[in-house]
Design a protein around this nucleic acid. Structure first.
Lengths: 341, 341
DNA sequence: CTGTTAGCGCTTTCAA
DNA sequence: TTGAAAGCGCTAACAG
């Protein structure tokens, strides 16, 4: 039932011209050598027949497939992952490209297989993405083609796209300071992570940004216990300790929204309120940030712009190598107020 | 710098055989006509040269690309969306296929463009997915190739993959009944939605399943006000009303986890506790379900198995047309207890 | 058991 | 201004 696809030859025949002519017209060659009439005839024929080029056949000659490979470790587990994909997808579409997507789940064999499958299909380039900002080593097969790192850095000299964690942290802490807070604590410290070059990429600049803001106001951070992870229960535990401590903070910076979610619960359990007794600011703009009551003020991970930038770099000049930093907008909700004391 | 890819001709030359022979061996033809020695030589040559077939070239002859198109309305916005993609990706990989993914955002032009771009690349088939279960009309261009609907139904007679909402609702309500509850309310009613053939696909079977379970125990549902949407604030509002009503429920079934999130807040604001005073059960298994305290018992949307099944059907015999229902496991956490009264 | 040849649909010299 | 012909890498008739 599926009728044979119409080919360039069909168009040419209908236009009463050669395949060459048809090809020339349809590809809008610069030095428009064909007569105006030939143009019209080909265009009309293509239109009437509903002609669409066979990209596979074309790529055999041109070695361009207008297809990019997007390789990431995890898409399903983390919820904003989709944002990077969406941004990449949008940019690709705007440039007439299409995305082959693979998820490796951190499995090197799966990854290798995925890369080869894409190479077999002659992708023009790769976006190699990590769902959690980190440093990584790019598989050699990826370096076979132009490539851009997304939400990660490496030592391969590849261009990489990263969120501006430090700037975001500076803004977040400054928001607290501007509201008048001086007793500020930070939830989510973990020296082991901060010293680990692989995992520190988000933690360290966030810490640095907070410190820089506080330093400008000559405020010292209230010490908080370390957290093993950045999950709600970690936030709950550490915030509980802080609230029971001798110098109770009026403002808390959480390293991410999941911690903040736990912090909210700890504040409530202590018989206190956000933001009346404790102001909270955080990172990521996880969907729950808007569901919490009061809404959580948080610096949004710009996943969509990041994904977009990655493919735009890939399609223009991916070679230069420096990291490109994308700003994280502070989404102001209702979790910050002036300190009550 | 990128060395020319090694071709079949290279392998053949190195093996001292014809291209045909090499092709035959590498494609493991059934009637292994080549000599054992020829086999070895070709295999060795391919191995040494790191030969990889050019799928584009192959597909020109075979009209098979081992590439599938995955079209969905939204991937980034909804958090579990990724699950369907992951399942589809896994199944595709296991079958040596690769996925071209596009997101249409509900825009028909974007959609048409995406479908054509995929058709231009000769995809072998389509998975057409909706991120919220619903009825839809499949674009004609999709019907050009084998296709399977994912999380949606249509009138095109396409095979579709759906979650077993009714079974899940039956289980959820039964869990409450078994715990001893008799005063049970349902949060998330909306007649307008239930009567709308487009949007009712999840709501109606959930309602039916709950009713069937209650009927078996001769229990009548406590009336609850309708909700405009299924968002946290809707759950908060309606649950608040129920708790202030004359016949306070001891068990609540929420139509989804976002509603349940709001319900938890309403219970807390009423000075009551989950599950001591009110048991809650819900649908979806949104990540927050596990973050809530106490953990929310909820029927999980089986996105991953659904995505997987869709491509498996597509790769085997997509033609048959009936809807295929995937069970929704009830994830038991801590939000159900015996009624206190 | 193995090689020759044609051709998938397209682009691109080169010649007319 | 136009067309013929070669060839991208591969598979599949058809010979031998």
């Amino acid at each position: 039932m599926t009728r044979r696809r119409v080919t360039l030859a069909d168009v040419a025949e209908r236009a009463g011209l050669s395949v060459t002519a048809a090809s020339l017209v349809l590809n809008r060659q610069p030095g428009t050598r064909l007569s105006e009439e030939a143009h019209q005839r080909v265009l009309a024929a293509a239109e009437e027949l509903g002609y669409r080029p066979n990209i596979a056949a074309r790529s055999l000659r041109t070695r361009k497939t207008a297809t990019l490979g997007f390789i990431s470790d995890v898409v399903a587990t983390t919820r904003f992952a989709g944002g990077m994909i969406r941004g990449a997808l949008d940019a690709a579409r705007e440039h007439g490209h299409v995305l082959l997507i693979a998820e490796t789940q951190g499995d090197k064999d799966v990854e290798q297989q995925a890369i080869e499958a894409m190479l077999d299909r002659q992708v023009d380039g790769f976006v190699y993405a990590a769902m959690f900002t980190r440093r990584l080593t790019v598989p050699a097969a990826v370096l076979t083609r132009p490539a851009v790192l997304l939400n990660a850095t490496s030592t391969d000299g590849l261009t990489s796209v990263l969120p501006d964690d430090e700037g975001a942290a500076y803004q977040a802490a400054t928001a607290l300071l501007r509201a008048g807070h001086r007793r500020i604590a930070l939830v989510g410290r973990n020296m082991a992570v901060e010293r680990d070059p692989v995992r520190s990429i988000a933690a360290t600049p966030r810490l640095r940004g907070v410190r820089r803001a506080l330093a400008e106001h000559r405020v010292r951070l209230i010490g908080a216990g370390p957290t093993e992870n950045w999950d709600p229960e970690d936030g709950y535990d550490v915030t509980g300790q802080l609230l029971r401590g001798r110098r109770r903070p009026t403002g808390i910076v959480c390293m991410n929204d999941r911690l903040a979610f736990g912090a909210y619960q700890a504040v409530a359990d202590a018989g206190l309120a956000v933001p009346g007794d404790v102001s909270v600011v955080s990172f990521d703009d996880d969907p729950i940030a808007s569901w919490l009551r009061p809404g959580l003020t948080t610096a949004a991970l710009p996943h969509e712009p990041m994904g977009r930038l990655a493919v735009e770099l890939l399609l223009s000049d991916p070679g230069d190598g420096g990291p490109r930093v994308v700003p994280m907008p502070l989404i102001a909700r209702a979790s910050i107020a002036a300190p009550s004391g």
